[in-house]
Simulated scan of single mutants.
Amino acid sequence: MKRSIFLHYSEKISFSQDPPARPKGDEREETATESLQLWTDSGESCPEGTVPIRRTTEKDILRASSIKRFGRKLRRHVRRDSTGGGHEHAVVFVNGEQYYGAKASLNVWTPRVTDGYEFSLSQIWVISGSFSHDLNTIEAGWQVSPELYGDNYPRFFTYWTTDAYQATGCYNLLCSGFVQTNNKIAIGAAISPRSSYNGRQFDIGLMIWKDPKHGHWWLQFGSRLLVGYWPAFLFSHLRSHASMVQFGGEIVNSRSSGFHTSTQMGSGHFAGEGFRRAAYFRNLQVVDWDNNLLPLTNLHLLADHSNCYDIRQGRNNVWGTYFYYGGPGRNNRCP
């Protein structure tokens, strides 16, 4: 019998407060393309009062460059004035106001990651503080990370930090912080099905928002599934609100040979190829002070290595604000 990759809490889960007030305008989306998680295909489920936890194995630890680094991002990976550490982005962001959450549907692919210590991800960032030392972030999306998971599947993930990735925070449930309340969603589990080039497209819907009553930051997966929350006391700047919200892709380019990595972002194809070829985010929204979901205004686009990965934004009545993004990495224009 194959050993389950999941452990289950034995203690009962209980809310320390009432369920959160969802943002006004968060209507149920009827969609046939919402992705599911691969672990449920076997019929495995969790008893009431428990949550699925991905098992951390000895091999997981050994793949990391150090035990201290396991489950953590490198410091300064989101700085916008440099690309220190080899982190490269193609993102849309808004700033200059007070934000209380963000929502989007993320197109899921299986980008090729060419080095064990590199990754490719697509996510939402909710950000406040200084990038240099006291950055607070809440992050959720999908990622391919052979170092963290030992394979090349796109996996649902979360992250948080309160000190610019120096000592606090981690991926998923690898440290205390995020409180999971749902027994149907496994953080760190592979997403299935995935999109294919010129084929069917699949999304996951994600929303992060601050509960106006208790102040915790909640995570919703899919149409209405509450995954859990980041308690307000974890944070300094994010205890009140966010000053920036960001959507898009990120990769790590660890090459020291002078050549750019061939790690792909999104589908591995440039934004200009459009639907069914390039990866996309659609229905981008933010949450305001009165718990209303609103369309984005005053958007900024950034592709810090546009010959390797790029981005194009648009708007229509079906997808609202959307963008295509990504690329192959190393190519004739990105040697």
Results as ranks from 00 to 15, higher is better:
93 F>D: 00
125 W>A: 02
231 P>G: 07
118 E>A: 06
330 R>Y: 06
269 H>I: 06
90 A>C: 10
202 F>M: 12
217 W>S: 01
279 A>G: 08
169 G>S: 02
279 A>L: 04
248 G>C: 07
176 S>C: 02
243 S>Y: 03
314 G>I: 01
31 T>M: 07
119 F>G: 10
59 K>P: 05
215 G>P: 08
24 K>V: 04
111 P>G: 07
157 F>T: 11
80 R>G: 10
272 G>Y: 12
254 S>G: 13
133 H>V: 04
35 S>W: 01
96 G>I: 00
20 P>I: 05
177 G>I: 08
23 P>V: 01
292 N>Y: 00
234 L>W: 03
63 R>G: 02
309 Y>R: 03
72 R>F: 02
188 G>M: 06
245 V>D: 04
252 V>W: 09
270 F>E: 00
310 D>N: 14
39 W>D: 00
153 Y>V: 08
313 Q>Y: 00
175 C>T: 00
331 N>E: 04
121 L>W: 11
258 G>D: 04
318 V>R: 13
236 S>V: 03
226 L>I: 05
35 S>L: 04
216 H>P: 11
329 G>F: 12
334 C>F: 05
319 W>D: 15
53 I>L: 15
65 S>H: 04
113 V>P: 01
242 A>L: 02
159 Y>P: 03
166 Q>E: 02
63 R>I: 04
182 N>G: 08
86 G>M: 06
91 V>Y: 03
192 S>I: 07
61 I>T: 10
123 Q>F: 09
22 R>Y: 11
147 E>Y: 00
165 Y>E: 06
335 P>S: 12
169 G>N: 07
50 T>D: 02
139 E>I: 09
14 S>M: 02
22 R>K: 09
264 Q>C: 12
331 N>S: 14
156 F>Q: 13
185 I>P: 07
11 E>R: 13
241 H>E: 09
19 P>Q: 00
270 F>I: 00
104 A>R: 08
254 S>L: 03
233 F>Q: 12
257 S>L: 03
76 R>T: 08
82 S>R: 04
15 F>E: 15
132 S>Q: 15
195 S>T: 14
50 T>L: 08
231 P>E: 10
327 G>I: 08
104 A>C: 06
287 V>G: 01
75 R>S: 11
76 R>D: 15
267 S>P: 06
81 D>H: 10
243 S>W: 05
10 S>I: 11
149 Y>A: 06
284 L>V: 02
77 H>A: 01
253 N>Y: 05
38 L>K: 05
72 R>D: 04
46 C>T: 13
223 S>P: 01
